[in-house]
Structures are given as structure tokens and as C-alpha cells.
């Protein structure tokens, strides 16, 4: 949900929001630049530095209110990266909420499958419950 002021071209606004959502989700789950001990970039190709494609992303239902800006004659505001801002914390916080009962309080971005797995397992040893309890009860406590 955004408010970009007076919408001049709805298709471009929609595209900007979709792209922003993808970028924000990618920061949460995929994109991360890493370096080795010599300072050499180890994520120098798109096989290592992951970008999601449409196949990796959900369907987006977007909406907007339209409150004209009062500081310019067109009533327009910026839409560039509007979807980016909230999507990163939304994804990260949802993962943390889903794993909180397992003793997880933080996971470094990007939230790779291995990092989530490691966090759940370290939370398991700290909390004394964890995955074993999920398997035994057939669902999260």
C-alpha cells in the first residue's frame, strides 16, 4: 500500500512497486556481497550473488491511496523503490516470528536456508525444545 500522490502513469507506478518489492525481498533472502580474507569478492557472478526472478517471487496484490502533494503543481510524489522499504523488514520479521518459539531472536540477512536452519538448531539447544518437539507433536507448539 503506497501513496505516490497524483498518479500520472499507472502502469509505471505498478512496475516500480513490483520492482521495489522484489528488491526488498531479495535483500532479505538472497542478495549478499561477501569477501575472502584477501579482500577478493567471492560473489562476483550471478551464480553466487543471487537475484530472484519472477519464478522465485509471490504474486503481488498492490493498492494505493492518492493524496496529491501540495508542493508542486502536478501533485506528484516519488514512487522509485517505494515497495522496497517495507518488504525487507516484513520478510525478516515474519521469519523471526515463525521461529521465535524455537528460541530464535535474530538471523543475519540474507536469510539463507542454511542460516535459518542453523539459527533454529542453536535455538533448539538453548531452549531445549525445538525441531524435535515439532516432529513429535506434528505441529508447532
Amino acid at each position: 500500500m503506497d501513496d505516490v500522490g497524483k498518479v500520472v502513469n499507472p502502469l509505471i507506478v505498478e512496475g516500480q512497486v513490483h520492482g521495489g518489492l522484489a528488491q526488498g525481498i531479495a535483500q532479505a533472502l538472497y542478495e549478499g556481497a561477501t569477501y575472502d580474507e584477501n579482500g577478493t569478492l567471492t560473489t562476483g557472478t550471478f551464480a553466487d550473488y543471487l537475484l530472484p526472478s519472477a519464478a522465485d517471487l509471490p504474486h503481488f496484490d498492490t493498492d494505493r491511496t492518492e493524496t496529491p502533494a501540495t508542493t508542486n503543481p502536478l501533485g506528484v510524489k516519488g514512487v522509485g523503490e517505494a515497495g522496497t522499504i517495507a518488504s525487507t523488514p516484513a520478510v525478516v520479521n515474519s521469519v523471526l516470528d515463525a521461529t521465535r518459539h524455537l528460541g530464535v531472536s535474530d538471523i543475519e540477512m540474507p536469510l539463507t536456508p542454511m542460516r535459518v536452519w542453523a539459527a533454529v538448531h542453536s535455538g533448539q539447544s538453548a531452549a531445549g525444545g525445538g525441531l524435535g518437539s515439532i516432529d513429535a507433536s506434528g505441529g508447532a507448539r
Binding site: Y30, L50, S53, T112
Partner: peptide
């Protein structure tokens, strides 16, 4: 198959 994004090599 397990990978992080579509069309990537298998982890």
C-alpha cells in the same frame, strides 16, 4: 532438488 532460486545449480 534443492536450490535457492529457480534455474540455479543444485545445492
Amino acid at each position: 532438488k534443492f536450490n535457492r532460486v529457480a534455474q540455479a545449480w543444485s545445492i
